[in-house]
Each structure stands twice: as C-alpha cells, then as structure tokens.
Amino acid sequence: MLQQIYPQVAHPYSYELNKDMNFAAAHFVPHESAGKCQQVHGHTYFVNLTIAGDELDSSGFLVNFARLKKIVSGQFDHTLLNDHKELFNEEDANDFPTSEVIARKIYELVQAHLDELENKPACVQVFVRETPTSYVVYRPKKVKRDE
C-alpha cells in the first residue's frame, strides 16, 4: 500500500494508533441525482482508522490491528455494499452507501467493538478514499471518554 499522510485530528489522548486497510466492493447510490453512480459499479476503497486512548490492554496494545481489519475489510471485501441491509438502505439518504455514509458506518462498527474493550479506546477519525482523487473523513462530534 502506498504510504500516505492523512488529515490529523486533535484529541486529548496519550496514544494514537492508525490502521490502513483496503477492500474491493461494489455499490450503487439509489437516487436520481447520483448520475452514473445509480448504476452498480465498484471501487477499491482505502481506509485509515485513527484510534486513540490513554490505557493499553493486558497485551500492551491500544487495540489489536488484526481485529480492526476483520471488522472492516473482513466484512466488506468483495461484497455489494447495498446488500448489507443492517447498515445501508434505499429509503433514507443517511443510509445510502456513499463514501460519507460508509465512513460513518465504519466508525459505528469499530466504536461498538472498542466499547467492549476494558481499556476503552476511541475511534477519533475514519478516512475513506473511494478513488485516487476523492476521499472523505468522518470524525464523531463527541469522542467517547471513560471518565
């Protein structure tokens, strides 16, 4: 994978982990203003997750890289994103499989896993590149902190 510099997000944590991954998937955007994107087509999506926290787990990790890859690439690689009905639908624009929504859904999946961990790390940014010239960044408005 080509190394790349990603937008950085300010956060109050001591540790920051970044995990790059990719997956090949098809999708279509079910809206008349989507133009050619209304048709089924595919991309090789490049994803970067930024995870932050103050505590390491019992193995010395903030979070296991392999688990993050399984949550994202393991779920979406070589699929039609529209078929993930638990995540995407054709009725609500907030759930169409656009790059923006894909980034938010990845955040939700990753954060749900992180919430189960004893050290309670937080996903502070999800970067999704759909094409060589187009990407989106999703950052939750409020980062979860274990107070």
Rank of each mutant, 00 (worst) to 15 (best):
E118L: 14
C123H: 00
R67F: 03
I5Q: 15
D115H: 12
A34R: 11
D57F: 06
V9S: 09
L2A: 13
K19E: 09
P132D: 12
A122T: 10
T131K: 11
A103F: 05
E147C: 04
T50M: 09
G60H: 09
D95E: 14
F127S: 00
Q75A: 15
D54K: 07
V126P: 01
N22W: 09
D146G: 07
Y6K: 03
N18P: 01
P12M: 12
A34P: 09
R145W: 03
N22D: 15
G60N: 13
G35Q: 14
D92Y: 07
A34I: 09
L87C: 11
V143F: 01
R139N: 03
N119K: 10
H11V: 03
A24K: 14
Y13W: 13
R139C: 09
K85Y: 05
H41T: 06
I51K: 01
Q8S: 13
S59N: 13
Y15K: 13
K69R: 08
T79D: 15
N89K: 03
T44G: 05
I102R: 03
L62I: 12
V124P: 00
A26T: 07
E86M: 09
F61I: 02
E116T: 15
C37T: 05
N18V: 08
G35L: 13
V110Q: 01
R67S: 10
M21E: 01
F61G: 01
Q3L: 08
K85A: 12
V136I: 05
S73A: 15
F23A: 08
P97H: 06
F88R: 00
L2G: 10
K70P: 02
S99N: 12
V136M: 02
A112F: 09
K105R: 14
L109K: 02
M21K: 00
R145A: 08
D83E: 13
P12L: 12
L117E: 09
V128D: 00
V47K: 00
V143K: 00
Q3S: 10
D95M: 12
C123M: 03
K19M: 06
D83K: 04
A112Y: 07
Y13K: 08
I71Y: 05
R104F: 09
Q75T: 15
H113M: 10
N82C: 07
N22F: 13
D115K: 14
L68F: 06
P7V: 11
L81F: 03
P121K: 05
L49A: 01
G35F: 13
D20H: 01
Q39I: 04
L109A: 04
V124M: 02
V29R: 00
Y135C: 03
S58R: 11
D54V: 10
R139V: 02
S14A: 15
C123F: 01
P30K: 05
E90L: 11
E32A: 15
A26F: 06
A25H: 06
S134N: 14
Q111P: 02
H41Q: 06
F96I: 03
E118Y: 08
N89V: 06
L17H: 06
I5S: 15
N89H: 04
N64T: 04
V9L: 08
F88D: 00
A93Q: 12
G35Y: 13
R145H: 10
G53R: 03
C123E: 00
